[in-house]
């Protein structure tokens, strides 16, 4: 019993158990679907088939291999998502600062931010598309809107988390307001800001993929709907699903790595092995 508990603390082992579990369930389903299939291709292919399709050199569309299709469209989707993400990140941070500076701005802006957040992307996308008339612009705007809220809300929470004593300390040294922000408030809110980024990054990518499906100008989402309609190999569909999932996870990881580089707080916490304490 003790041994099992000890093994449970090993992170890689937990991951491994999960992966094996998913593979087993997947394969059972794949066999089951293959047994009742009515299409020439198995709608739920075996895992090895999906993985093989990445290195398969036979063309699937327009002389391109599956890998080339997925890679080129992933880059397109990611670039659009990234532009929107950076835009939303900047605006979210600035708005959080403004809300902190002025209670009126907070009262005016915050409820509407939450409302925007509640509109489903699928509903919002066509509206924004008709407003802007350009799919590229609307993709960026939607990614920005989705990034904006978690970043603004988390950063604001971080700015508000600063204790009264720290203000009093700065006050007692007659620190100007600018210094209270640069030396105390902004460094204090960084961990919260990054939490916002970690939530927002995969959302921006998902949004970008979703908007891809609206119009046929490339991108992962566009290929996704095309491959589903059997315009392309079913493997492309699964390749895209797999790649999207990996990109989403990596985007969150990437934010964590950037945080490690920028903010010393996380490094210290890890050094003393007391993460998240206090």
């Amino acid at each position: 019993m003790k041994k099992i508990r000890k093994l449970g603390q090993k992170k890689w082992l937990v991951t491994l158990v999960w992966v094996i579990g998913i593979v087993i369930v997947w394969e059972i389903m794949a066999f089951r679907v293959a047994a009742v299939k009515r299409t020439p291709e198995n709608i739920l292919p075996h895992i090895y088939q999906i993985l093989y399709s990445f290195i398969d050199s036979s063309p699937v569309a327009g002389g391109q291999t599956a890998l080339m299709v997925v890679a080129s469209n992933a880059v397109a989707t990611l670039l659009r998502a990234a532009v929107g993400f950076l835009l939303g990140m900047g605006l979210g941070f600035v708005l959080a600062l403004l809300m902190k500076l002025s209670g009126i701005i907070e009262k005016l802006a915050f409820p509407y931010l939450m409302l925007i957040q509640m509109i489903p992307i699928l509903g919002m996308a066509p509206i924004i598309l008709s407003l802007t008339g350009d799919i590229g612009t609307s993709r960026i705007i939607i990614a920005a809107i989705l990034t904006f809220y978690p970043v603004a809300a988390n950063t604001l929470a971080g700015l508000k988390s600063v204790e009264t004593e720290k203000y009093e300390l700065m006050y007692s040294y007659a620190a100007p307001k600018r210094m209270i922000y640069t030396k105390v408030l902004i460094p204090a809110c960084l961990p919260y800001f990054f939490t916002g980024l970690k939530i927002a990054a995969p959302m921006a990518i998902t949004a970008s993929i979703l908007v891809d499906t609206l119009q046929g100008d490339g991108g992962l989402g566009c290929m996704l709907s095309q491959s589903l309609r059997h315009a392309m190999s079913i493997y492309v569909f699964w390749d895209i699903v797999l790649v999207s999932a990996v990109i989403g996870i990596l985007s969150t990881k990437l934010m964590g790595w950037i945080e490690d580089l920028v903010s010393p707080l996380k490094r210290i916490d890890r050094q003393i092995g007391r993460r998240g304490g206090k």
């Binding site: 620190a175 105390v184 010393p264």
Partner: peptide, 30 residues
């Protein structure tokens, strides 16, 4: 306003993201 007060609070009120040296330098920077 002339920055002639040195205050020590009940809790140390240090900035976690600054090293000990940088914490001591904070009022000097101000």
């Amino acid at each position: 306003m002339q920055q002639k007060f040195g205050i020590v609070f009940q809790s140390p009120v240090l900035l976690d993201w600054r090293t000990v040296r940088k914490n001591i330098e904070l009022p000097l920077e101000i």
